[in-house]
Protein backbone atom coordinates (compact mmCIF):
# COMPACT_ATOMS: atom_id res chain seq x y z
CA UNK A 1 0.00 0.00 0.00
CA UNK A 2 1.44 3.40 -0.93
CA UNK A 3 0.47 7.00 -1.58
CA UNK A 4 0.83 6.87 -5.37
CA UNK A 5 -2.23 7.44 -7.52
CA UNK A 6 -4.07 4.13 -7.86
CA UNK A 7 -6.46 5.37 -10.53
CA UNK A 8 -5.99 5.96 -14.23
CA UNK A 9 -7.96 7.57 -17.07
CA UNK A 10 -8.54 6.59 -20.71
CA UNK A 11 -5.68 7.67 -22.97
CA UNK A 12 -5.86 11.31 -24.05
CA UNK A 13 -8.71 11.99 -21.64
CA UNK A 14 -7.55 15.38 -20.35
CA UNK A 15 -6.88 16.80 -23.81
CA UNK A 16 -10.27 15.56 -24.96
CA UNK A 17 -11.89 16.97 -21.82
CA UNK A 18 -10.44 20.41 -22.50
CA UNK A 19 -11.85 20.37 -26.04
CA UNK A 20 -15.28 19.18 -24.84
CA UNK A 21 -15.55 21.97 -22.26
CA UNK A 22 -14.39 24.68 -24.64
CA UNK A 23 -16.85 23.48 -27.31
CA UNK A 24 -19.67 23.59 -24.75
CA UNK A 25 -18.94 27.12 -23.55
CA UNK A 26 -18.35 28.48 -27.05
CA UNK A 27 -21.57 26.91 -28.34
CA UNK A 28 -23.64 28.33 -25.50
CA UNK A 29 -22.27 31.60 -24.15
CA UNK A 30 -25.17 31.66 -21.71
CA UNK A 31 -23.46 33.47 -18.92
CA UNK A 32 -26.00 35.40 -16.94
CA UNK A 33 -24.73 38.94 -17.34
CA UNK A 34 -27.11 41.27 -15.51
CA UNK A 35 -28.12 44.30 -17.60
CA UNK A 36 -28.14 46.48 -14.50
CA UNK A 37 -26.04 45.70 -11.45
CA UNK A 38 -26.44 47.53 -8.12
CA UNK A 39 -23.23 48.55 -6.33
CA UNK A 40 -22.57 46.41 -3.22
CA UNK A 41 -23.16 49.32 -0.77
CA UNK A 42 -26.56 50.03 -2.33
CA UNK A 43 -27.52 46.36 -1.96
CA UNK A 44 -26.72 46.46 1.78
CA UNK A 45 -28.63 49.76 2.20
CA UNK A 46 -31.64 48.27 0.40
CA UNK A 47 -31.54 45.15 2.61
CA UNK A 48 -31.36 47.22 5.85
CA UNK A 49 -34.22 49.48 4.66
CA UNK A 50 -36.32 46.41 3.86
CA UNK A 51 -35.73 45.05 7.39
CA UNK A 52 -36.86 48.38 8.93
CA UNK A 53 -39.96 48.54 6.72
CA UNK A 54 -40.94 44.95 7.58
CA UNK A 55 -40.38 45.51 11.34
CA UNK A 56 -42.42 48.76 11.19
CA UNK A 57 -45.25 47.09 9.32
CA UNK A 58 -45.31 44.21 11.83
CA UNK A 59 -45.38 46.67 14.77
CA UNK A 60 -48.24 48.73 13.32
CA UNK A 61 -50.12 45.54 12.49
CA UNK A 62 -49.69 44.28 16.06
CA UNK A 63 -51.24 47.55 17.41
CA UNK A 64 -54.42 46.99 15.41
CA UNK A 65 -54.60 43.30 16.27
CA UNK A 66 -54.41 43.94 20.02
CA UNK A 67 -57.76 43.05 21.79
CA UNK A 68 -59.64 46.15 23.03
CA UNK A 69 -60.51 44.66 26.37
CA UNK A 70 -58.35 42.06 28.06
CA UNK A 71 -58.89 42.65 31.78
CA UNK A 72 -62.28 40.99 32.41
CA UNK A 73 -60.80 38.75 35.08
CA UNK A 74 -59.96 41.83 37.18
CA UNK A 75 -63.67 42.47 37.98
CA UNK A 76 -65.39 40.52 40.75
CA UNK A 77 -68.82 38.85 40.41
CA UNK A 78 -70.20 41.29 43.00
CA UNK A 79 -69.16 44.23 40.84
CA UNK A 80 -70.90 42.70 37.79
CA UNK A 81 -74.06 41.98 39.85
CA UNK A 82 -74.11 45.57 41.06
CA UNK A 83 -73.67 46.76 37.49
CA UNK A 84 -76.58 44.62 36.29
CA UNK A 85 -78.74 45.88 39.17
CA UNK A 86 -78.16 49.42 38.04
CA UNK A 87 -79.36 48.72 34.46
CA UNK A 88 -83.09 49.36 33.73
CA UNK A 89 -83.78 45.70 32.93
CA UNK A 90 -85.68 43.10 34.96
CA UNK A 91 -84.43 39.56 35.68
CA UNK A 92 -86.99 37.90 33.39
CA UNK A 93 -85.94 39.96 30.36
CA UNK A 94 -82.30 39.40 31.19
CA UNK A 95 -82.67 35.59 31.45
CA UNK A 96 -84.78 35.51 28.29
CA UNK A 97 -82.00 37.36 26.58
CA UNK A 98 -79.39 34.92 27.91
CA UNK A 99 -81.33 31.84 26.72
CA UNK A 100 -82.25 33.23 23.32
CA UNK A 101 -80.61 31.80 20.18
CA UNK A 102 -79.19 35.15 19.21
CA UNK A 103 -76.28 34.85 21.60
Amino acid sequence: MNKRNHFSVPEGYFEQFHNTIMEQIERKPSKTRPIFRLPAQLKYAAAISAIFIICGALYINSLYDRPLYTHAEEYSNEYIDDLLDSYPIDDYTFYTYLTSNDI
Binding site: N5, F7, V9, F14, F17, H18, I21, M22, I25, E26
Partner: peptide, 18 residues
Protein backbone atom coordinates in the same frame (compact mmCIF):
# COMPACT_ATOMS: atom_id res chain seq x y z
CA UNK B 1 -12.04 35.77 -21.11
CA UNK B 2 -12.54 32.65 -23.23
CA UNK B 3 -8.81 32.21 -23.85
CA UNK B 4 -8.08 32.66 -20.12
CA UNK B 5 -10.76 30.13 -19.22
CA UNK B 6 -9.18 27.69 -21.65
CA UNK B 7 -5.88 28.17 -19.77
CA UNK B 8 -7.63 27.54 -16.46
CA UNK B 9 -9.24 24.32 -17.76
CA UNK B 10 -5.85 23.07 -18.95
CA UNK B 11 -4.13 24.06 -15.71
CA UNK B 12 -6.62 22.71 -13.18
CA UNK B 13 -8.71 19.95 -14.78
CA UNK B 14 -6.26 17.20 -13.87
CA UNK B 15 -5.85 18.00 -10.16
CA UNK B 16 -9.59 18.60 -9.81
CA UNK B 17 -10.30 15.31 -11.56
CA UNK B 18 -8.20 13.33 -9.05
Amino acid sequence: QTAAFSLAVRAYSEQLYW
